[in-house]
Design a protein around this nucleic acid. Sequence first.
DNA 1: GTATATTATGAAAACGCTTACATTAATACA
DNA 2: TGTATTAATGTAAGCGTTTTCATAATATAC
Lengths: 338, 338
Amino acid sequence: MGITIYDIAKAADVSIATVSRVINDTGRVRSKTREKVLKLADEMGYHPQAFAQGLASKKKNTIAVVVPVISNYFFMEVLAGIQDQLSNHEYELNIINIKSDEDLFAQAEHLLKRQVAEGYIFISIHFSDEKWKSLKRYSKSIVIVDDWHKDFDSVNVDDKHGAYAATKHFVDQGYKKIAMISALENSKPIIKRIEGYKKALEDSGIEFDENLIVTGDSSYRDGFSEKNGYQAMKKLLAMDPLPDACFSASDIKSIGALKAMKEAGVHIPLISYDNLAISEYIGLSTVAQPMYEMGSIATEYLLERIDNNDKKISHTVYTPEIKLRESSNKPESISSTE
Amino acid sequence: MGITIYDIAKAADVSIATVSRVINDTGRVRSKTREKVLKLADEMGYHPQAFAQGLASKKKNTIAVVVPVISNYFFMEVLAGIQDQLSNHEYELNIINIKSDEDLFAQAEHLLKRQVAEGYIFISIHFSDEKWKSLKRYSKSIVIVDDWHKDFDSVNVDDKHGAYAATKHFVDQGYKKIAMISALENSKPIIKRIEGYKKALEDSGIEFDENLIVTGDSSYRDGFSEKNGYQAMKKLLAMDPLPDACFSASDIKSIGALKAMKEAGVHIPLISYDNLAISEYIGLSTVAQPMYEMGSIATEYLLERIDNNDKKISHTVYTPEIKLRESSNKPESISSTE
DNA sequence: GTATATTATGAAAACGCTTACATTAATACA
DNA sequence: TGTATTAATGTAAGCGTTTTCATAATATAC
């Protein structure tokens, strides 16, 4: 089928070892020979086959990024950081989508055992301490983004702090009835955000009312969807009196929430979470997660670890920054079509 | 390091051939033996190594999606379609990012020669007829999305028609000075959209003015960015008199354009192109490309072709549908913060 | 109970490469 | 010019599978 190293060796009248040395630039070979091989390889269109190389060298020139859903704006931004950081290196990027309706852990284990990559970045995949630990033996090169384990390099955002700041902002404005749009509570970040929200209320002497934490019914993508945000806001809008303000656990949901408010001709001051690229353009106040940087630094960690496994484990926790834009303003100062 | 087929064979006191047969469920093996092997494999945590399997079987259980930039909303939506379609099959998804500042073709060729995947979906990668043809020999299983070649299955949108419809809509509203926000003209879709725009003007007896086709200066992502759209709109806003309406070649640019208009306190009716998930939520009128479906059908084509290379070549051309929302309305009826 | 058909298993080659080690060729030095 | 070094190349094993073909075990027929 394709051209192999044997074809080149034969054509150049050398051994395959020499061809290999030339192609990989390892070991010494006479410059005349090198040129001959290179010329032939180019002419005949030879490229080493990835699978054969991987097997023989035990080096897969691939980094795998493991995510629960690929097509999600949050991952995209992180991915952009990974991609840019990786573009200076010779690795390929393999993005692996773990199916959320099956056993996540089994899938992760499977992946690692199959040894598809040189290193792995797990994004927003949450395992228990003990499960993470058990993955340790399959690969030394794993970086966790958006979850934490002491044995792995990790990159995180202080979610509790972010939620606290957003809620506190509303408290400082004098609002009392502050709602929260949440998501499925099976993820650590969401739990942390709820904690931050509660803490801010508590510190301000506002009694926590669990009815003020709502989520939509759509379970698509664990509730991280415009639709779910729309539904959640509908619930809030049905309250009497209306909430004074609302903290939303993700930008994507806020887009739906904004839509619901627009339709109802009502605006409840809203602060969201993420700071997607589009958020600025739609005037969404939000707690900014440095997603690009997270991807970028995770990649750095991974490359370092691949290079040297003795390197001590690094954890980065970003303190998110609150971006105040229009959506958190009082009703009077906000535009409305109605 | 890891558990290999030899370890299982030894433990089960059978040959590696038998283990292989059990694991892959190929060939017959006594049910007692099967159970023993299965049990051991499970206990010892055996998973065949991807690279060894790939080399031996010549089957890579991977589909590669090749894109110019991963983190772009358009690709994300297409990817969602691919991913969902693929989730019913046993393939892994390898997303490969071709660097746009290097020789695209060389990179594509390299990929194919390395035989990293069983089949390839090229999205928004544009080659000449002759170059596409030359790729044919490296893999039989290639599907092209957003470009066309007679020798490959392809999925497209009638860009000329879409642009025509958008422009015609403005003409029908009585607008005369209709601008267009373009992008780098090195992509076939952009060229087609410009053609459609021109044709609509021509058919309506409006003289084409090349100054009305603008683009921003930012070349980041070939001009497909909010920033570039923002810059482009700034140029239009500097015109006197202002354009009556504007057709924009992509939603992502329109987000920037809307921002520029909002800042200026002016609104020029705008119709855009793509229909990203967010577009509906920000009231962006747009020519809808069925991105999800495109990804989905491309995947179907690819799987069919992998299965049977004699299958006749399929081309799908979607006729895009124009979605009228608020952004195409006259200034009076549009909201503004100012 | 033996011959025959059938089923289960094993031995070994192959996949295309890397790499340790052995060998040969080239150069240095006396 | 001969020997010692060093550089260049080749040989062959190994990476972990799959798969063909041969063989052993079992079932079926008479």
